[in-house]
Design a binder for these strands. Structure first.
Lengths: 214, 214
DNA sequence: ACAGGGTTCAAACGATTGTTTGAATCAGGC
DNA sequence: GCCTGATTCAAACAATCGTTTGAACCCTGT
């Protein structure tokens, strides 16, 4: 069979995940990837039909791993209280701040896409109808008034994930000079608590009477 | 004097602002800018010492215009109730969703930077100690418990601005197929109310007892 | 031993990026 | 009128990007 093919495929995917997570898709060059993977230039085009094809493959893997392992897990979601589930989810989204394992890299990749979705990514979510956003929507729905419109719930979910991804993307920036945040476990716990608590406290009032627009 | 110089300078700046707002700094090429401005290739390097120099100049202008005109205005901030001030600020941040005027373009430029700060931008905020974030920090502080640490207030401000900039950046994406949001004035009002109300409802509980980390 | 297909390789391709060049053009001062 | 400095211009530069090429390589089946 094609033993060696699968081997270098994995080599490439591993290197690509690391780079895509670190810098995002656009800023990661093919030459960076093949250098890190210690394979030839043409390998990506041979095995994945180009950079886009590689990214699509990587997205597929990341999505599978995340949905099977996430705090979005349907079973776990029901066994926990809404507050616990939300806290777990936020903690999961902030995971790349603390750990550099594979799962964290996948989350970070999606954090880049939430900043500026690439063409490949759009094609990807077009195929996966059950977007990773739907999990977040279910999560916030439990805090929103029961008659909240789907659109508002979607916006709330986007806001929730956006708050996490800002920190994931700019981790290094916030650690540096004007901010000087020491990003350790106590800090991330604090941050996750902050985001979670603001959501818990605020979401129930999301559909109150219209504010004066002035 | 150098009349014609200032004229083409403004031509370039105007075109650059439009493109930087639309696509961000990195994705806007020098050739796009000079074509839109109807000036020569070399003009940018002659007048601004390169693309970076142009961007720095544009950032300076945008920052001045925003601080003098923003909902962050110190006088206006004190004359309004905390709730009104926050709602005004959020509405201001979401302005690019509705209008395409100059002010909206400046806001959108900063929204791109909040996603992935460029080198030029980092150098810029290093020089402007009173970051545009400090206004947001003051705003959220009025809802946080009085003894909240500066670090937590800063995180809350980042979260607040992040929620707005997600929609500003991805306006077109959310209008399209998987989401199909019609981004008109009622929607933006609704969204601004949502973000504001979640913040008002949640921020006071930001420093409650530690949540169980599980 | 040989042929053939899957895989690797170094090199080049064409497109795009930001920047530089050197001549051409224009203005105003002596 | 001519010189000088500022400004514009078309063209090229060097670097990087993703992709393609065609020969070399290696393993397998016959």
């Amino acid at each position: 069979m094609t033993r060696p093919a699968e081997y270098t495929r994995n080599l490439i995917i591993k290197a690509a995940v690391a780079l895509f997570a670190e810098k995002g898709f656009e800023r990661s060059s093919v030459r960076d990837i093949v250098t890190k993977a210690r394979v030839n230039q043409a390998a990506i085009n041979y095995h994945f039909k180009g950079k886009d094809g590689l990214y699509f493959e990587v997205l597929k893997i990341a999505f599978e791993r995340l949905t099977e392992n996430a705090g979005v897990d349907a079973g776990e979601l029901k066994s926990l209280s809404p507050e616990q589930a939300l806290r777990r989810f936020v903690g999961h989204q902030l995971r790349p701040l603390l750990f550099q394992d594979e799962l964290s890299r996948y989350i970070r990749m999606f954090a880049w896409e939430s900043a500026h979705p690439s063409k490949v990514f759009r094609k990807f979510i077009a195929g996966n109808t059950t977007s990773y956003l739907s999990g977040a929507v279910d999560l916030v729905r439990r805090f929103l008034p029961p008659d909240t419109q789907e659109r508002a719930a979607l916006c709330a979910a986007i806001c929730l994930m956006g708050q996490c991804s800002v920190f994931v993307r700019n981790r290094d920036l916030f650690a540096q000079d004007p901010f000087r945040m020491t990003i350790d476990e106590p800090f991330v716990d604090e941050l996750a608590d902050l985001i979670t608590r603001v959501a818990i406290g605020g979401l129930p009032h999301a559909e109150d009477a219209r504010l004066t627009t002035a």
